[in-house]
Design a protein around this nucleic acid. Sequence first.
DNA 1: TGTAAGGTTAGCTTATGGTTAACTCTTTGT
DNA 2: ACAAAGAGTTAACCATAAGCTAACCTTACA
Lengths: 230, 230
Amino acid sequence: MKESKAKILLVDDEPDILEIVSYNLKNEGYQVYTAENGEEAIKKAKKKKPDLIILDVMMPVMDGIEACEKMRKMPELDKTIITFFTARSEDYSMIAGFDAGADDYITKPVKPRVLVSKVKSLLRRNSTDKELEDTTKKLGDLIIDRDQYKIFFKKEELILPRKEFELLSLLTTQPGKVYTREEILDVVWGNDVVVGGRTIDVHIRKLREKLGDKRFKTVKGVGYKYVQSK
Amino acid sequence: MKESKAKILLVDDEPDILEIVSYNLKNEGYQVYTAENGEEAIKKAKKKKPDLIILDVMMPVMDGIEACEKMRKMPELDKTIITFFTARSEDYSMIAGFDAGADDYITKPVKPRVLVSKVKSLLRRNSTDKELEDTTKKLGDLIIDRDQYKIFFKKEELILPRKEFELLSLLTTQPGKVYTREEILDVVWGNDVVVGGRTIDVHIRKLREKLGDKRFKTVKGVGYKYVQSK
DNA sequence: TGTAAGGTTAGCTTATGGTTAACTCTTTGT
DNA sequence: ACAAAGAGTTAACCATAAGCTAACCTTACA
């Protein structure tokens, strides 16, 4: 299994395009979210914090330019790449797009292969951040080694099953931060996987068994967080 | 917002490595000092008080582990981040390193870009304030942290149940502004949820119990507002 | 291809949080 | 000063999320 791939938000008002493009991107292992207008796009962007947003210019409710401007002002999206998706030779929209803070733009129609490689190259731009997450991190008596997929707990080497490891890894990326069940599902399971409501609990329970109760705090109705043990 | 860049002390016994790594770091604007063994490292650390020390484990004269232990005892370096620099999969040295008080470790060989971004993220750790401000709201003796879903009240950590937290969160978005019962219902409960007429009052009461009476002002016939206590 | 470890589910229990109802207190307008 | 309406106070009650367990699939690998 690969590391978790980037999140892409695809915004277009034509369902056909959404379907075909998202099919191609999913095929490459990306987590794809879709929206049909600018308003929806902003909501989803806020929620999912995608790495890349592919934004159609012409849309009802709120067009791409406006949506882009708004999203560029959202601090949580400062690392997100935004690219426009427009019909060829709409020069106007290209100019306006860059003005609005877009990073790139893709012309329609586009061959799937071309799109995919464009997306790859766009994401490579800030891939250094991704590589970072794959290194060792230390939290008190807990050392997590992503490279070798194992942890050290109180100086004991411990090998966790994948799901447990990924879950622990997520919770510890920001100790103290509460991760909602939705976020956890998105990252550890992938956004299109549907699992029962008790699955996360069971994994949390296993982690608590192995690493102690106290460090995994439940925030009822919200999610879970990892807290440094004292 | 260009603060003066951080000071980094790079310690390795191979001149080639010193040169290439320091070249890359200098390129990013850091002040780089170098040392070729543990002894020298300690002297320079004392003098320069670097923000970050990158320390090779295997060195003549004094190895990295010993140097790290010594430096950890120096009070003037208590804010310094120490990271080891070791060949991949030397498990022993990793554990020993963390034991000796290292904050992180970097495996050799490392791509310059990865190294640079790792260094950046390590240095970012020190400026905790930045990340806090993003999600945290401060109102006098009250600090609201949405990320961690908790508040600090008179320096005491306090965990509020969901509805109470959301209600407080809403009222404090604009201290002094009166929020009507309708607005409160819309935001905290959602527009379509129907609850009895006394529900809001009960939650307000709980907040008053926990945070004191005075700051939640009732405006009869209109709604509630949060006022900064004096 | 059999087996063991990992992952998921279902069904039940428990704890907490949220809501309600009944009653009282306060404010405000006449 | 009095009525009426809105707000405050309780405690009981109900709903829901999370905990737990065991059984049951799935996958990886020998």
